[in-house]
Design a protein around this nucleic acid. Structure first.
Lengths: 208, 208
DNA sequence: TCATATATCGGACTTTTAGTTCGTTTTATG
DNA sequence: CATAAAACGAACTAAAAGTCCGATATATGA
Protein backbone atom coordinates (compact mmCIF):
# COMPACT_ATOMS: atom_id res chain seq x y z
CA UNK A 1 0.00 0.00 0.00
CA UNK A 2 1.25 3.48 -0.81
CA UNK A 3 2.49 5.40 2.18
CA UNK A 4 -0.03 8.15 1.54
CA UNK A 5 -3.06 5.92 1.44
CA UNK A 6 -1.78 3.90 4.33
CA UNK A 7 -1.52 6.94 6.51
CA UNK A 8 -4.96 8.16 5.52
CA UNK A 9 -6.41 4.77 6.37
CA UNK A 10 -4.72 4.76 9.72
CA UNK A 11 -6.12 8.18 10.45
CA UNK A 12 -9.55 6.96 9.39
CA UNK A 13 -9.34 4.04 11.78
CA UNK A 14 -8.16 6.19 14.63
CA UNK A 15 -11.02 8.59 14.05
CA UNK A 16 -13.51 5.78 13.87
CA UNK A 17 -12.40 4.34 17.17
CA UNK A 18 -12.34 7.74 18.80
CA UNK A 19 -15.82 8.67 17.75
CA UNK A 20 -17.22 5.33 18.88
CA UNK A 21 -15.51 5.75 22.24
CA UNK A 22 -16.76 9.30 22.48
CA UNK A 23 -20.35 8.20 21.99
CA UNK A 24 -20.05 5.46 24.57
CA UNK A 25 -18.30 7.71 27.07
CA UNK A 26 -21.08 10.23 26.73
CA UNK A 27 -23.83 7.65 26.96
CA UNK A 28 -22.55 5.43 29.75
CA UNK A 29 -19.74 7.38 31.34
CA UNK A 30 -16.03 6.76 30.97
CA UNK A 31 -15.72 4.38 33.90
CA UNK A 32 -18.58 2.21 32.74
CA UNK A 33 -17.29 1.84 29.22
CA UNK A 34 -14.99 -1.13 28.73
CA UNK A 35 -12.44 -1.65 26.03
CA UNK A 36 -14.55 -4.53 24.79
CA UNK A 37 -17.51 -2.19 24.50
CA UNK A 38 -15.46 0.20 22.42
CA UNK A 39 -14.10 -2.56 20.21
CA UNK A 40 -17.55 -3.97 19.59
CA UNK A 41 -19.22 -0.64 18.94
CA UNK A 42 -16.41 0.64 16.73
CA UNK A 43 -16.43 -2.74 14.96
CA UNK A 44 -12.79 -3.68 15.37
CA UNK A 45 -11.19 -6.47 17.30
CA UNK A 46 -9.74 -5.55 20.65
CA UNK A 47 -6.24 -6.34 19.39
CA UNK A 48 -6.68 -3.78 16.65
CA UNK A 49 -7.82 -1.16 19.13
CA UNK A 50 -4.54 -1.69 20.95
CA UNK A 51 -2.64 -1.22 17.72
CA UNK A 52 -4.00 2.28 17.44
CA UNK A 53 -4.14 3.28 21.09
CA UNK A 54 -1.97 2.15 23.88
CA UNK A 55 -4.54 2.31 26.67
CA UNK A 56 -8.02 3.42 27.54
CA UNK A 57 -6.52 6.55 29.04
CA UNK A 58 -4.85 7.23 25.75
CA UNK A 59 -8.23 7.15 24.03
CA UNK A 60 -9.76 9.40 26.61
CA UNK A 61 -6.95 11.90 26.35
CA UNK A 62 -7.21 12.01 22.58
CA UNK A 63 -10.89 12.84 22.86
CA UNK A 64 -10.16 15.46 25.48
CA UNK A 65 -7.52 16.99 23.29
CA UNK A 66 -9.96 17.18 20.44
CA UNK A 67 -12.52 19.01 22.55
CA UNK A 68 -9.89 21.33 23.86
CA UNK A 69 -9.06 22.17 20.30
CA UNK A 70 -12.67 22.91 19.54
CA UNK A 71 -12.83 25.22 22.51
CA UNK A 72 -9.54 26.90 21.70
CA UNK A 73 -10.63 27.58 18.12
CA UNK A 74 -13.97 28.86 19.29
CA UNK A 75 -12.39 31.22 21.78
CA UNK A 76 -9.68 32.36 19.45
CA UNK A 77 -12.10 33.25 16.67
CA UNK A 78 -14.79 34.69 18.94
CA UNK A 79 -12.49 36.84 20.98
CA UNK A 80 -9.91 37.88 18.42
CA UNK A 81 -12.52 39.19 16.00
CA UNK A 82 -13.93 41.60 18.56
CA UNK A 83 -12.36 45.03 18.80
CA UNK A 84 -14.20 46.14 21.90
CA UNK A 85 -12.72 44.92 25.18
CA UNK A 86 -15.97 44.62 27.07
CA UNK A 87 -17.71 42.71 24.29
CA UNK A 88 -14.65 40.50 23.89
CA UNK A 89 -14.71 39.75 27.59
CA UNK A 90 -18.33 38.64 27.50
CA UNK A 91 -17.67 36.57 24.41
CA UNK A 92 -14.94 34.75 26.28
CA UNK A 93 -17.31 34.06 29.16
CA UNK A 94 -20.03 32.87 26.87
CA UNK A 95 -17.74 30.57 24.90
CA UNK A 96 -16.79 28.89 28.14
CA UNK A 97 -20.36 28.65 29.35
CA UNK A 98 -21.44 27.13 26.06
CA UNK A 99 -18.64 24.62 26.22
CA UNK A 100 -19.46 23.59 29.76
CA UNK A 101 -23.08 23.22 28.74
CA UNK A 102 -22.34 21.08 25.70
CA UNK A 103 -19.56 18.94 27.08
CA UNK A 104 -19.85 18.96 30.86
CA UNK A 105 -17.86 15.75 31.14
CA UNK A 106 -14.83 17.28 29.52
CA UNK A 107 -14.97 20.57 31.31
CA UNK A 108 -13.01 19.34 34.33
CA UNK A 109 -10.12 18.49 32.02
CA UNK A 110 -9.82 22.15 31.13
CA UNK A 111 -8.62 23.28 34.47
CA UNK A 112 -5.65 20.98 34.31
CA UNK A 113 -7.84 19.18 36.74
CA UNK A 114 -7.36 15.79 35.26
CA UNK A 115 -5.38 13.09 36.95
CA UNK A 116 -2.26 12.76 34.83
CA UNK A 117 -1.77 9.18 35.81
CA UNK A 118 -4.69 6.84 36.17
CA UNK A 119 -2.89 4.12 38.04
CA UNK A 120 -0.56 1.88 36.12
CA UNK A 121 -0.05 3.44 32.74
CA UNK A 122 0.86 7.05 32.47
CA UNK A 123 -0.29 8.97 29.48
CA UNK A 124 1.21 12.33 28.87
CA UNK A 125 -1.43 14.97 28.43
CA UNK A 126 -0.05 17.37 25.90
CA UNK A 127 -2.78 19.92 26.16
CA UNK A 128 -0.20 22.62 26.64
CA UNK A 129 -0.27 23.54 22.99
CA UNK A 130 -4.02 23.94 23.07
CA UNK A 131 -3.94 25.76 26.36
CA UNK A 132 -1.54 28.19 24.80
CA UNK A 133 -4.09 29.06 22.14
CA UNK A 134 -6.52 30.05 24.85
CA UNK A 135 -3.78 31.81 26.71
CA UNK A 136 -2.94 33.86 23.63
CA UNK A 137 -6.56 34.78 23.10
CA UNK A 138 -6.91 36.08 26.64
CA UNK A 139 -3.59 37.89 26.36
CA UNK A 140 -4.78 39.57 23.19
CA UNK A 141 -8.04 40.54 24.83
CA UNK A 142 -6.33 42.10 27.81
CA UNK A 143 -3.88 43.96 25.60
CA UNK A 144 -6.82 45.64 23.89
CA UNK A 145 -8.09 46.65 27.29
CA UNK A 146 -4.73 48.09 28.23
CA UNK A 147 -4.33 50.01 24.97
CA UNK A 148 -7.79 51.46 25.16
CA UNK A 149 -7.19 52.40 28.81
CA UNK A 150 -10.21 50.41 29.86
CA UNK A 151 -8.23 48.33 32.33
CA UNK A 152 -7.04 49.71 35.62
CA UNK A 153 -3.47 50.99 35.69
CA UNK A 154 -2.28 48.49 38.26
CA UNK A 155 -3.33 45.52 36.14
CA UNK A 156 -0.30 43.51 35.04
CA UNK A 157 -0.72 41.53 31.85
CA UNK A 158 0.79 38.09 32.54
CA UNK A 159 -0.65 37.26 35.94
CA UNK A 160 -4.00 38.68 34.94
CA UNK A 161 -4.31 36.22 32.06
CA UNK A 162 -4.19 33.36 34.52
CA UNK A 163 -6.33 35.22 37.00
CA UNK A 164 -9.13 35.81 34.51
CA UNK A 165 -8.99 32.28 33.20
CA UNK A 166 -9.04 30.61 36.58
CA UNK A 167 -11.70 32.77 38.18
CA UNK A 168 -14.10 32.46 35.25
CA UNK A 169 -13.47 28.73 35.02
CA UNK A 170 -14.12 28.35 38.71
CA UNK A 171 -17.35 30.29 38.53
CA UNK A 172 -18.66 28.20 35.64
CA UNK A 173 -17.48 24.97 37.14
CA UNK A 174 -19.19 25.45 40.47
CA UNK A 175 -22.35 26.77 38.82
CA UNK A 176 -22.44 23.58 36.77
CA UNK A 177 -22.23 21.40 39.86
CA UNK A 178 -24.56 23.28 42.17
CA UNK A 179 -27.67 23.29 40.03
CA UNK A 180 -29.78 22.73 43.14
CA UNK A 181 -29.20 26.17 44.68
CA UNK A 182 -30.56 28.16 41.76
CA UNK A 183 -34.13 29.46 42.05
CA UNK A 184 -34.03 28.41 45.74
CA UNK A 185 -31.19 29.65 47.97
CA UNK A 186 -30.11 31.97 45.22
CA UNK A 187 -33.21 33.64 43.97
CA UNK A 188 -32.20 33.56 40.32
CA UNK A 189 -31.64 30.99 37.59
CA UNK A 190 -28.26 29.72 36.52
CA UNK A 191 -28.10 31.95 33.45
CA UNK A 192 -28.93 35.03 35.41
CA UNK A 193 -26.45 34.10 38.12
CA UNK A 194 -23.67 33.65 35.59
CA UNK A 195 -24.45 37.02 34.01
CA UNK A 196 -24.38 38.59 37.44
CA UNK A 197 -21.06 36.95 38.27
CA UNK A 198 -19.38 37.91 35.02
CA UNK A 199 -20.60 41.45 35.39
CA UNK A 200 -19.35 41.64 38.96
CA UNK A 201 -16.03 40.08 38.04
CA UNK A 202 -15.63 42.57 35.21
CA UNK A 203 -15.50 45.27 37.84
CA UNK A 204 -12.27 43.83 39.19
CA UNK A 205 -10.54 44.64 35.93
CA UNK A 206 -11.73 47.98 34.73
CA UNK A 207 -10.86 51.53 35.59
CA UNK A 208 -13.67 53.39 37.30
CA UNK B 1 -20.42 -5.91 76.02
CA UNK B 2 -22.15 -2.76 77.17
CA UNK B 3 -23.66 -0.73 74.39
CA UNK B 4 -21.53 2.24 75.36
CA UNK B 5 -18.22 0.44 75.25
CA UNK B 6 -19.21 -1.36 72.10
CA UNK B 7 -19.92 1.85 70.31
CA UNK B 8 -16.67 3.40 71.48
CA UNK B 9 -14.78 0.37 70.25
CA UNK B 10 -16.46 0.52 66.89
CA UNK B 11 -15.58 4.16 66.59
CA UNK B 12 -12.01 3.36 67.52
CA UNK B 13 -11.80 0.72 64.80
CA UNK B 14 -13.32 3.01 62.20
CA UNK B 15 -10.83 5.71 63.10
CA UNK B 16 -7.95 3.30 62.97
CA UNK B 17 -8.88 2.12 59.52
CA UNK B 18 -9.47 5.63 58.29
CA UNK B 19 -6.14 6.93 59.47
CA UNK B 20 -4.28 4.01 57.97
CA UNK B 21 -6.06 4.56 54.67
CA UNK B 22 -5.36 8.26 54.85
CA UNK B 23 -1.64 7.65 55.23
CA UNK B 24 -1.55 5.23 52.34
CA UNK B 25 -3.65 7.47 50.11
CA UNK B 26 -1.27 10.31 50.78
CA UNK B 27 1.84 8.21 50.25
CA UNK B 28 0.87 6.18 47.20
CA UNK B 29 -2.23 7.86 45.84
CA UNK B 30 -5.79 6.65 46.11
CA UNK B 31 -5.77 4.65 42.90
CA UNK B 32 -2.61 2.80 43.83
CA UNK B 33 -3.79 1.82 47.27
CA UNK B 34 -5.63 -1.50 47.39
CA UNK B 35 -8.05 -2.72 50.00
CA UNK B 36 -5.50 -5.39 50.89
CA UNK B 37 -2.93 -2.66 51.48
CA UNK B 38 -5.28 -0.87 53.81
CA UNK B 39 -6.20 -4.04 55.68
CA UNK B 40 -2.57 -4.98 56.13
CA UNK B 41 -1.41 -1.54 57.21
CA UNK B 42 -4.35 -0.97 59.53
CA UNK B 43 -3.81 -4.48 60.87
CA UNK B 44 -7.29 -5.88 60.35
CA UNK B 45 -8.45 -8.64 58.10
CA UNK B 46 -10.06 -7.56 54.87
CA UNK B 47 -13.39 -9.01 55.99
CA UNK B 48 -13.34 -6.74 59.02
CA UNK B 49 -12.63 -3.72 56.87
CA UNK B 50 -15.79 -4.54 54.98
CA UNK B 51 -17.71 -4.75 58.22
CA UNK B 52 -16.89 -1.12 58.91
CA UNK B 53 -16.93 0.30 55.41
CA UNK B 54 -18.92 -0.80 52.49
CA UNK B 55 -16.42 0.07 49.77
CA UNK B 56 -13.16 1.78 49.05
CA UNK B 57 -15.14 4.79 47.93
CA UNK B 58 -16.85 4.83 51.25
CA UNK B 59 -13.48 5.05 52.98
CA UNK B 60 -12.33 7.81 50.69
CA UNK B 61 -15.47 9.81 51.24
CA UNK B 62 -15.19 9.52 55.00
CA UNK B 63 -11.68 10.91 54.83
CA UNK B 64 -12.82 13.67 52.54
CA UNK B 65 -15.62 14.53 54.88
CA UNK B 66 -13.21 14.76 57.75
CA UNK B 67 -10.98 17.17 55.87
CA UNK B 68 -13.93 19.21 54.83
CA UNK B 69 -14.82 19.53 58.46
CA UNK B 70 -11.36 20.69 59.33
CA UNK B 71 -11.56 23.32 56.65
CA UNK B 72 -15.05 24.41 57.62
CA UNK B 73 -14.03 24.83 61.27
CA UNK B 74 -10.92 26.69 60.26
CA UNK B 75 -12.85 29.06 58.05
CA UNK B 76 -15.66 29.55 60.51
CA UNK B 77 -13.36 30.44 63.37
CA UNK B 78 -10.93 32.51 61.29
CA UNK B 79 -13.53 34.52 59.50
CA UNK B 80 -16.21 34.89 62.15
CA UNK B 81 -13.78 36.27 64.71
CA UNK B 82 -12.74 39.13 62.45
CA UNK B 83 -14.78 42.31 62.60
CA UNK B 84 -13.15 44.02 59.65
CA UNK B 85 -14.48 42.99 56.25
CA UNK B 86 -11.24 43.36 54.36
CA UNK B 87 -9.23 41.42 56.92
CA UNK B 88 -11.94 38.75 57.04
CA UNK B 89 -11.80 38.46 53.27
CA UNK B 90 -8.06 37.88 53.27
CA UNK B 91 -8.40 35.38 56.09
CA UNK B 92 -10.86 33.43 54.00
CA UNK B 93 -8.45 33.43 51.10
CA UNK B 94 -5.55 32.37 53.26
CA UNK B 95 -7.48 29.56 54.91
CA UNK B 96 -8.21 28.14 51.51
CA UNK B 97 -4.65 28.55 50.30
CA UNK B 98 -3.35 26.84 53.38
CA UNK B 99 -5.77 24.00 52.94
CA UNK B 100 -4.82 23.50 49.30
CA UNK B 101 -1.19 23.53 50.29
CA UNK B 102 -1.58 20.98 53.06
CA UNK B 103 -4.04 18.64 51.44
CA UNK B 104 -3.79 19.13 47.68
CA UNK B 105 -5.30 15.74 47.00
CA UNK B 106 -8.50 16.60 48.78
CA UNK B 107 -8.85 20.07 47.38
CA UNK B 108 -10.63 18.93 44.25
CA UNK B 109 -13.34 17.41 46.40
CA UNK B 110 -14.17 20.85 47.70
CA UNK B 111 -15.54 22.17 44.51
CA UNK B 112 -18.14 19.44 44.36
CA UNK B 113 -15.71 18.28 41.77
CA UNK B 114 -15.68 14.72 42.85
CA UNK B 115 -17.30 11.99 40.84
CA UNK B 116 -20.28 10.95 42.94
CA UNK B 117 -20.24 7.48 41.47
CA UNK B 118 -17.00 5.66 40.91
CA UNK B 119 -18.38 2.93 38.73
CA UNK B 120 -20.49 0.24 40.29
CA UNK B 121 -21.13 1.33 43.85
CA UNK B 122 -22.58 4.68 44.54
CA UNK B 123 -21.68 6.38 47.76
CA UNK B 124 -23.65 9.40 48.77
CA UNK B 125 -21.41 12.30 49.54
CA UNK B 126 -23.08 14.19 52.30
CA UNK B 127 -20.77 17.13 52.37
CA UNK B 128 -23.71 19.47 52.16
CA UNK B 129 -23.74 20.00 55.90
CA UNK B 130 -20.09 20.91 55.89
CA UNK B 131 -20.48 23.04 52.80
CA UNK B 132 -23.17 24.92 54.63
CA UNK B 133 -20.76 25.85 57.38
CA UNK B 134 -18.51 27.46 54.83
CA UNK B 135 -21.49 29.01 53.17
CA UNK B 136 -22.59 30.56 56.43
CA UNK B 137 -19.12 31.92 57.10
CA UNK B 138 -19.00 33.65 53.74
CA UNK B 139 -22.53 34.92 54.19
CA UNK B 140 -21.56 36.39 57.55
CA UNK B 141 -18.49 37.98 56.06
CA UNK B 142 -20.43 39.61 53.25
CA UNK B 143 -23.08 40.85 55.65
CA UNK B 144 -20.41 42.71 57.58
CA UNK B 145 -19.32 44.29 54.31
CA UNK B 146 -22.86 45.34 53.53
CA UNK B 147 -23.50 46.79 56.98
CA UNK B 148 -20.27 48.73 56.99
CA UNK B 149 -21.03 50.00 53.47
CA UNK B 150 -17.76 48.57 52.20
CA UNK B 151 -19.46 46.54 49.51
CA UNK B 152 -20.86 48.10 46.37
CA UNK B 153 -24.58 48.87 46.43
CA UNK B 154 -25.42 46.54 43.59
CA UNK B 155 -23.95 43.52 45.37
CA UNK B 156 -26.65 40.99 46.21
CA UNK B 157 -25.93 38.74 49.13
CA UNK B 158 -26.96 35.23 48.05
CA UNK B 159 -25.43 35.00 44.58
CA UNK B 160 -22.31 36.75 45.78
CA UNK B 161 -21.63 34.05 48.36
CA UNK B 162 -21.37 31.49 45.58
CA UNK B 163 -19.53 33.92 43.35
CA UNK B 164 -16.82 34.60 45.91
CA UNK B 165 -16.44 30.97 46.80
CA UNK B 166 -16.20 29.71 43.23
CA UNK B 167 -13.89 32.41 41.93
CA UNK B 168 -11.44 32.09 44.82
CA UNK B 169 -11.52 28.32 44.62
CA UNK B 170 -10.87 28.45 40.90
CA UNK B 171 -7.94 30.80 41.35
CA UNK B 172 -6.32 28.60 43.98
CA UNK B 173 -7.05 25.43 42.12
CA UNK B 174 -5.44 26.52 38.88
CA UNK B 175 -2.50 28.08 40.69
CA UNK B 176 -1.92 24.73 42.37
CA UNK B 177 -1.84 22.90 39.06
CA UNK B 178 0.18 25.34 37.00
CA UNK B 179 3.26 25.55 39.13
CA UNK B 180 5.41 25.67 35.98
CA UNK B 181 4.32 29.14 34.88
CA UNK B 182 5.41 30.93 38.00
CA UNK B 183 8.75 32.74 37.88
CA UNK B 184 8.79 32.14 34.10
CA UNK B 185 5.78 33.21 32.01
CA UNK B 186 4.40 35.02 35.00
CA UNK B 187 7.25 36.95 36.47
CA UNK B 188 6.27 36.30 40.06
CA UNK B 189 6.11 33.40 42.47
CA UNK B 190 2.96 31.55 43.36
CA UNK B 191 2.50 33.36 46.67
CA UNK B 192 2.86 36.73 45.08
CA UNK B 193 0.55 35.77 42.26
CA UNK B 194 -2.12 34.66 44.72
CA UNK B 195 -1.83 37.90 46.66
CA UNK B 196 -2.15 39.83 43.44
CA UNK B 197 -5.21 37.84 42.40
CA UNK B 198 -6.97 38.18 45.72
CA UNK B 199 -6.28 41.87 45.77
CA UNK B 200 -7.57 42.29 42.24
CA UNK B 201 -10.62 40.18 42.96
CA UNK B 202 -11.35 42.24 46.04
CA UNK B 203 -11.88 45.18 43.73
CA UNK B 204 -14.88 43.47 42.19
CA UNK B 205 -16.68 43.65 45.51
CA UNK B 206 -15.97 46.97 47.11
CA UNK B 207 -17.33 50.42 46.66
CA UNK B 208 -14.86 52.88 45.21
C1' DT C 1 -15.40 -22.24 85.13
C1' DC C 2 -18.31 -23.09 81.45
C1' DA C 3 -21.66 -21.77 77.78
C1' DT C 4 -22.78 -18.65 74.49
C1' DA C 5 -22.80 -14.83 71.62
C1' DT C 6 -20.20 -11.77 69.00
C1' DA C 7 -16.13 -9.91 66.72
C1' DT C 8 -12.45 -10.98 64.07
C1' DC C 9 -9.61 -13.74 61.19
C1' DG C 10 -7.83 -15.74 57.05
C1' DG C 11 -7.83 -17.41 52.95
C1' DA C 12 -10.07 -19.16 49.12
C1' DC C 13 -13.35 -17.68 45.78
C1' DT C 14 -15.96 -14.71 42.19
C1' DT C 15 -16.16 -11.13 39.03
C1' DT C 16 -14.71 -7.55 36.25
C1' DT C 17 -11.75 -5.38 33.26
C1' DA C 18 -7.30 -3.81 31.25
C1' DG C 19 -4.01 -5.34 28.60
C1' DT C 20 -1.27 -9.34 26.03
C1' DT C 21 -0.26 -13.11 22.94
C1' DC C 22 -0.26 -15.63 19.02
C1' DG C 23 -1.79 -18.41 15.45
C1' DT C 24 -5.25 -17.72 11.69
C1' DT C 25 -7.64 -15.18 8.20
C1' DT C 26 -8.37 -11.37 5.23
C1' DT C 27 -7.00 -8.00 1.94
C1' DA C 28 -4.27 -5.19 -1.04
C1' DT C 29 -1.02 -5.18 -4.53
C1' DG C 30 2.92 -6.25 -7.46
C1' DC D 1 -0.87 -16.18 -7.73
C1' DA D 2 2.50 -15.10 -4.10
C1' DT D 3 3.46 -12.35 -0.39
C1' DA D 4 3.43 -9.02 3.13
C1' DA D 5 0.84 -6.22 6.00
C1' DA D 6 -3.37 -5.56 8.63
C1' DA D 7 -6.94 -7.26 11.20
C1' DC D 8 -9.12 -10.92 13.65
C1' DG D 9 -10.50 -13.63 17.60
C1' DA D 10 -10.22 -16.22 21.29
C1' DA D 11 -7.82 -17.65 24.98
C1' DC D 12 -4.84 -15.89 28.45
C1' DT D 13 -2.68 -13.10 32.43
C1' DA D 14 -2.86 -9.95 36.08
C1' DA D 15 -4.75 -6.98 39.36
C1' DA D 16 -8.09 -5.51 42.26
C1' DA D 17 -12.82 -5.09 44.48
C1' DG D 18 -15.75 -7.38 46.91
C1' DT D 19 -17.90 -11.96 48.98
C1' DC D 20 -18.19 -16.19 51.68
C1' DC D 21 -17.64 -19.16 55.27
C1' DG D 22 -15.65 -22.04 58.55
C1' DA D 23 -12.24 -21.43 62.23
C1' DT D 24 -10.71 -18.86 66.13
C1' DA D 25 -10.43 -15.54 69.68
C1' DT D 26 -12.69 -12.76 73.24
C1' DA D 27 -16.00 -10.86 76.34
C1' DT D 28 -19.74 -11.60 79.44
C1' DG D 29 -23.18 -13.57 82.30
C1' DA D 30 -24.84 -17.54 84.83
Amino acid sequence: MGARKKEALEQFNRDNILSAAKELFEKKGVENTTMDDIAKYADYSKSTIYVYFKSKDDIYNCILERYMNILACQIESDVASEKDFEKGYYRLCNSLVKFEHEYPQYYAGLLGQEKITNGKKKTEIKLNTVGEGINDAITGLLQKGIEKKVLRDDIELEPTVLYVWSAISGIIQVAGKKSDVFDTTIKMGKEEYLDYSFKTFYESLIRR
